[in-house]
Design a protein around this nucleic acid. Sequence first.
DNA 1: ATGAATGCAAACTATTTGCATATAA
DNA 2: TTATATGCAAATAGTTTGCATTCAT
Lengths: 169, 169
Amino acid sequence: MNKQNIVAIDNHSQYGGDMIRAEKIFKDFLVTRGLRYTQARRKILKEVFSLQNHFEADDIVQKLRSKGEKVSIASVYRTIPLLIDAGIIIKNPCEHMNARLEPVFGQQHHDHLICVKCKKIIEFRDNKIEQRQKKVAQQHGFEMEEHRLVIRGYCGDCQQLNENKSEQP
Amino acid sequence: MNKQNIVAIDNHSQYGGDMIRAEKIFKDFLVTRGLRYTQARRKILKEVFSLQNHFEADDIVQKLRSKGEKVSIASVYRTIPLLIDAGIIIKNPCEHMNARLEPVFGQQHHDHLICVKCKKIIEFRDNKIEQRQKKVAQQHGFEMEEHRLVIRGYCGDCQQLNENKSEQP
DNA sequence: ATGAATGCAAACTATTTGCATATAA
DNA sequence: TTATATGCAAATAGTTTGCATTCAT
């Protein structure tokens, strides 16, 4: 449920070559962490590439089922963070209710920097980005209602911790 | 749970005057729709303003409980979409797993325009926004991992439908 | 008076977890 | 061989809904 029409403006590459490279990257990623490239993970990775568009965890299970293959939903959920860490998929902002809410009445619009490590949220506003967003909306014939920009990364403090960590032998 | 540190860079106004104006706006909004400004809705609105920061549905119930007042979680969930429609709160992109996922390996980064009416998703890329985001991250000492921009609004098709609708007597 | 809103509890959906078994290296 | 991963089913969390009752107008 909650299926959405997807209109891809950019051409999607066929994923054939990408799949092969991604498989290598994922394997290396796993090995580096002392983890294993298993049947289930292989199937899930393949499905991610066959799906080519936005998808949810259960889509993987359904798609595999329709091909007579199967992987448990638990394994899908356990694999998703690995694929994210390996840089193969990302999470997109979602329209679900369990989003965080924020009062905006009487407030100037602002966007967010979120530290992926300590979860600190920093609010910012950049007028050039604001302007540019208006332009993009216009270009696509959109009447903009609102826009949300999130930059995720490591804040100053957590970068240092990270560097320390990777310096460990 | 899943509490996050909030660092507000912008000064938040005290919400006192905003609360009063918001109350009027919310009331008008409800009346226009033939809905009622009830005790529960008043309490929820007041809590939204006392919370001043990002919050989740259950925070409202808890905060009220700690003051000896109460509203059911069901009413909170039923009121949230009204507050959103009235322009008093917004949903922020969330970090929860039930986000939509997207393969990005071998893909150029892109952002999304989403039609709030027909849910159509249009992907776009704007280099000026990309550059500017890098700059913002730098300014705040962030090491950017990724960024997501969503512009929500009415696509060309749905604007027309909307206009027609508001023309009805 | 009466249509709309509430609270409660049950239902649903998405996600996570414990554990016995299977499997990659 | 053995630590890691899997599938299952049970548990948890977040959200929605039906219904009898209460409330706003």
